[in-house]
Amino acid sequence: MSDHEEQPANRLRKELPAEVPPSPSASGDGDPGEARPERSGLTGRQRLLKGLWPPRLTRAQLIVALLLFGLGFGLAVQVASNSDSDSALRGARQEDLVRILDELDDRTQRLEDEKQGLEKQRDELENSSDQAEEARKQTLEKERQLGILAGTVAAQGPGITVTIEDTKGTVEADMLLDAIQELRAAGAEAIQVNGVRVVAGTYLADADNSVSVDGNKINAPYRFQVIGEPQDLEPALNIPGGVVQTLEKEQATVTVERSSKIVVDALRAAERPDYARSSSQ
C-alpha cells in the first residue's frame, strides 16, 4: 500500500512503523529513513515548514494537491451522506438490512397485536356505553309509565268522560267507588275526578252532602276523565245492573262521552314510603 517508507535508492520495503526513537547511528539499512535528517542537516520539523512555506507551484505539488482534493471530497461526501438520517440504511450490508427488516416485522406484528387489543377494548367500551344509554332510555320510559300509574305525570290519550249529575244528593261515595272500580276493571289507565287524580291508594268517603276523594271535597256534578279504550270503558258502565243503571235508580243522570283525546293533568306528589323499600337490587 503506501510505500513512502521505501528508500527510493534501493526500493527495499522498510519495516513497518519504527516506534523506536530515531537513533543517531545511521549504520546499516535497519533505519535508513530515520537516518537521513542527520545527513541532510535538516530536521523533520524544518523540512515540514520548508514544504509549507513558501508555496511552490511544482508538478509534484499539483498532483498531490489533486489527490488530496479527491480525498477531502470523498471524506466530506461520506461524512455528509452518513449524517443524513434517511440514508442511514444506505451503507448497510445485506445481512444487516435483513436483520433490520426482521426486527421491523416483529415490531409491526407487536404493534398490530396491540392495535387489535385496543380496538377490541374500544368496541367493548362503545358497546357498554350503548348498553348504558339503552338502559337509561328504558329506565326513563319505565319512569314515565310508572309515573302515569302513580299519578306523578300528566297523561293524555283516547278515553271517555263520565258526568254524573246529582240533583237529589243521593250519590254516595260507594257508588263513585263502584264506578271507579268498574272503569279500572275495563282497563282504565288514568282517571281523574273533578280535578283529583285517582291512583292506587285513593280513598273515597262521604262528607256531608258531598264526597271527599283523598281528603279533597268534591261536589256534584262528578266529572270523571278516564283514559283507556273507549269501546271497552263505555259498555262496562252501561251493562245491565251496572254503574249507570244503579246511579239512575238513585235519580242521578249519567252521561258518557267518548273522546279521542282525554287529558288527565291532575297531579299527585310522589310520596316516599316510610317503611317499604324496593327489594330489587
Binding site: 514544504g51 479527491g70 477531502g72
Partner: peptide, 10 residues
Amino acid sequence: MIAVLGLVVG
C-alpha cells in the same frame, strides 16, 4: 502548501 490547499478545497 498547495497540497494542503487541495485538501481544504476538496
